[in-house]
Design a protein around this nucleic acid. Structure first.
Length: 802
DNA sequence: GCGAGCAGCGTACCT
DNA sequence: ACAGGTACGCTGCTCGCG
């Protein structure tokens, strides 16, 4: 049978316990389960197998037997020798096969006394896929034999997968809905071809009327079964919709059969995060896709609410509703119910739209890493790298390194490695700037110097090794695991990019390739972090610090080389350098680039990022020494496009009025170079603030509380605003974004800070002197505009400080 | 008792 | 729960002075 491997999970169904594969059959295009109970979980023991006497073996068997008889007496086990490479040396280990995966870590720990244990904490589903050499989210052929399932590759394209989104509304009279008492009042879905809203109680043409909550849940489940989607998605459905529905169904004594063949979702909670499987389909929580986008820097939003994310990704506004009154809309019925239905439907539809944007990327990440779609969509980049390395290590016959112990993790975390180099800029405004950067600096360093724990050897002869700036040696000949995996990733990505050049950007092929190259890029950029990640299996301090040391070496070499060629390097950070060039200087900088590239290893390259007509660097604030500020600059390119980094206006913890004023000042200076106009603008803003006519929403400062309020040592304005709000009976979730305004009442700034909902006025002096002026003064200062000038022409009071 | 100066906390940014 | 480098506001302390 040919099909697409949608999911692999371990569980129990119809009395059968084991591995289930969920496959979309090629012919029927239908989903079906394949059950395989033949594969045994196992771990490895390094007990000096070659010299293991009979008594030793008997001792091991006895120990295993002891644990088994205490927990699960009917369990069988099996011992066989197996060869693995540990640190470049082939050794024979004892493979201990068991029946129940949950016994693996327990028995492994018991056998520690006989030697070092390995591969006892590999998730069973992943273990199965690795050993069976099957890749989730790919097509394959399956045959059933007496000894379980047999796989071979099937060469046909990935079928299109159907995606249905849903959303629920809950009764919320008491503020936050509590699943033990507040019913689900509405459910909507969108499959692309079909939308619908279920509700009960009131009547409206916009809803399919149900008799009760449980009738509604039943009708929803029937609809899912009828449509039979491959993927079910929602927004934060791991954290809210599915656990809520499950709890309601349980209380109502009804089933929530959203899975294939009536299976019900299974929710589990792991380290604060909840996840819900829907057996036989893939439950894709769009929110986890959003989190991934945030970690790779693709989106940056103060709040990751559905409406914010939707607006950011599609440039469209979503229907909204007065959320605290949702229960009233429902109760009222009629037009109100229609309104609520429209809102609920729009939540489903926008979640689906976002899911469609992310899905191709998630699919490729799954295909590349070998993690299931379910797992990869919930994985951090560290988990993805780990999954891929586990597989590749197995393919090469290498041992999968163990997870570090708690004490190892904390020891690693306490000794951070030295990072990148940042060149100190001189404050000022510059004309004609060119920016060069090393694309994929760290990945290319890893490849060109064969950096890997297995190639690291302090005793390597200098001739046979790459020697890092601190003297770590890496063998040149035998290719390391990470360099090998990484160079395949980069090669593939390069080939894809080349292919894309010939395609039109709106073709299906282009979109698919773009998702694939993005997935490869995300992975490539994660390997360095994984070496230095305290919880990493392949952690290597030497590798991580060699990478950054070589990184510093290369960027400094580029700067030196440029300066030796008479060029002025004004700034550089990690892998980039900013050069000022004079009249006719374009050829000169391009010549520098090509000359410099001749000195680099093959896989490394300094590339031209862009030419800029003007740029501004400022000095640091509140420091006596007039040093330039790093990681803060504004540039305008030859097409008039402005790029701003690090300034207050890109930081959400500054008020919109300060951000807006700073943006306008930078724009005026970059586009027109008109200082007077910029100063005039600032003065006008200050006047407006002083008249106390500034709308309050322009004064809201956003800050995230990253700890529980009680855990703070210092009572900062945002903490103080939170506590004040709580005193006023406002229910704000802990660990959330606080929007506050500095009001006029109070002595310290913290006392004056009130959450936006409670603020009635604002402290003009604070917004002038602590927000707007600090945001612009350094910029104007960089242009030789000094405070006396400001004082003379400026209006009295508030400018006095400057 | 009080303001200046500074260290440390804390957040959000850059690559 | 991928890395380190950096800016900078605010609180709360120390210190010197009266």
């Amino acid at each position: 049978m040919d099909g697409f491997l949608l999911d692999v999970f371990f569980g129990e169904r119809k009395g059968e316990k084991g591995i289930f594969l969920v496959v979309k059959e090629k012919k029927s295009k239908k989903l079906r389960y394949f059950f395989d109970a033949s594969f045994r979980p196992y771990f490895l023991l390094d007990c000096n197998y070659g010299n293991l006497a009979k008594e030793g073996r008997a001792g091991i068997k006895k120990s295993i037997g002891k644990v088994i008889s205490a927990i699960s007496p009917s369990q069988k086990f099996n011992l066989t020798p197996i060869k693995k490479i540990i640190k470049n040396v082939q050794v024979t280990l004892l493979k201990i096969e068991l029946q129940d995966p949950s016994l693996v870590p327990k028995i492994a720990r018991e056998l520690k006394k006989f030697g070092k244990i390995y591969e006892y904490e590999i998730p069973f589903v992943h273990r199965y896929c690795i050993d069976k050499k099957i890749w989730p989210s790919t097509t394959l052929s399956i045959e059933r034999s007496s000894s379980g399932l047999i796989f071979s590759s099937a060469d046909y394209p990935v079928p299109s997968l159907s995606l249905l989104s849903f959303d629920i509304e809950t009764y919320n009279k008491g503020g936050v809905s509590i699943p033990s008492k507040d019913p689900v009042i509405m459910i909507s879905y969108d499959s692309g071809n079909e939308q619908g809203v279920f509700s009960y109680g009131g009547r409206s043409d916009a809803v399919i009327s149900c008799n009760s909550e449980s009738d509604m849940i039943g009708k929803f489940c029937s609809k899912i079964e009828e449509i039979g989607p491959d993927i079910i998605c929602g927004y934060n459905s791991d954290g809210f919709d599915l656990p809520y529905l499950l709890e309601r169904a349980k209380r109502l004594g009804t089933s929530l059969s959203l899975g294939l063949e009536g299976e019900t979702p299974k929710c589990s909670s792991h380290r604060m995060r909840n996840s819900c499987k829907i057996p036989g389909r893939v439950h894709f929580d769009v929110f986890s896709g959003v989190l991934l986008m945030r970690t790779v820097g693709a989106i940056r939003l103060p709040r990751l609410s559905l409406s914010n994310v939707y607006a950011e990704l599609t440039d469209k506004k979503k229907v909204t509703i007065d959320k605290p009154n949702i229960y009233k809309f429902w109760k009222k019925g009629g037009e109100s119910l229609t309104q609520l239905a429209t809102y609920c439907q729009s939540d489903s539809s926008s979640a689906r739209e976002i899911a469609q944007i992310f899905f191709p990327l998630e699919l490729e990440l799954s295909r590349i890493t070998g993690l299931t779609l379910f797992d990869v969509s919930r994985a951090t980049t560290g988990k993805m790298v780990e999954g891929l390395l586990e597989r590749k290590a197995y393919e090469k016959g290498q041992i999968i390194l163990p997870k570090p112990s708690f004490s190892t993790i904390s020891a690693r975390a306490q000794a951070p490695i030295e990072g990148a180099f940042v060149k100190l800029p001189s404050p000022g405004i510059y004309e004609n700037i060119v920016v060069f950067d090393f694309r994929s600096l760290y990945p290319s360093i890893i490849i060109s110097h064969n950096i890997d724990p297995s190639t690291l050897d302090p005793n390597a002869p200098e001739k046979e090794a790459y020697v890092s700036p601190q003297g770590h040696k890496f063998y040149k000949n035998k290719k390391g695991l990470v360099p090998e995996v990484l160079s395949n990733i980069l090669k593939t990505r390069f080939a894809i990019k080349k292919k894309m050049e010939k395609l039109s950007a709106d073709s299906m092929e282009y979109k698919y390739l773009n998702a694939r190259q993005t997935a490869l890029k995300i992975l490539a950029n994660s390997f360095f972090g994984y070496f230095g990640y305290a919880r990493s299996r392949w952690y290597s301090r030497e590798c991580a610090e060699s990478i950054t040391a070589w990184g510093r070496y290369y960027i400094k070499s580029a700067i030196d080389f440029a300066e030796k060629n008479g060029l002025e390097v004004i700034y550089g950070d990690t892998d980039s350098l900013f050069i000022r060039y004079g009249a006719g200087g374009k050829e000169k900088v391009l010549k520098f680039q090509s000359e410099f590239n001749k000195h680099l290893p093959e896989s490394m390259n300094l590339e031209l990022e862009a030419f800029y007509t003007r740029g501004i660097f400022v000095s640091k604030k509140n420091k006596k020494e007039k040093k330039g500020a790093k990681k803060k600059y504004a540039l305008i390119d030859e097409k008039g496009k402005i790029k701003i980094k690090g300034f207050e206006l890109v930081r959400r913890d500054w008020s919109p009025i300060a951000q807006e004023t700073q943006r306008k000042v930078l724009e005026i200076l970059l586009r027109e170079g008109n200082i007077k106009k910029a100063v005039e603008l600032v003065r006008k803003t200050v006047e407006d603030l002083k008249k106390e006519k500034m709308p309050l929403e322009k004064l809201i400062i956003l800050t995230q509380l990253r700890k529980k309020p009680a855990e703070y040592e210092v009572k900062s304005p945002e903490v103080s605003a939170f506590l004040d709000a709580k005193k006023h009976g406002l229910s704000l979730p802990e660990d959330s974004m606080i929007g506050y305004i500095i009001t006029s009442k109070g002595k310290t700034i913290s006392e004056k800070a009130k959450v936006a909902e409670l603020a009635k006025d604002y402290d003009a002096d604070y917004y002038i002197n602590n927000q707007v002026l600090p945001a612009v003064i350094k910029i104007l200062g960089a242009l030789g505009y000094n405070k006396t000038e400001f004082l003379n022409k400026g209006s009295q009071t508030s400018l006095g400080k400057w």
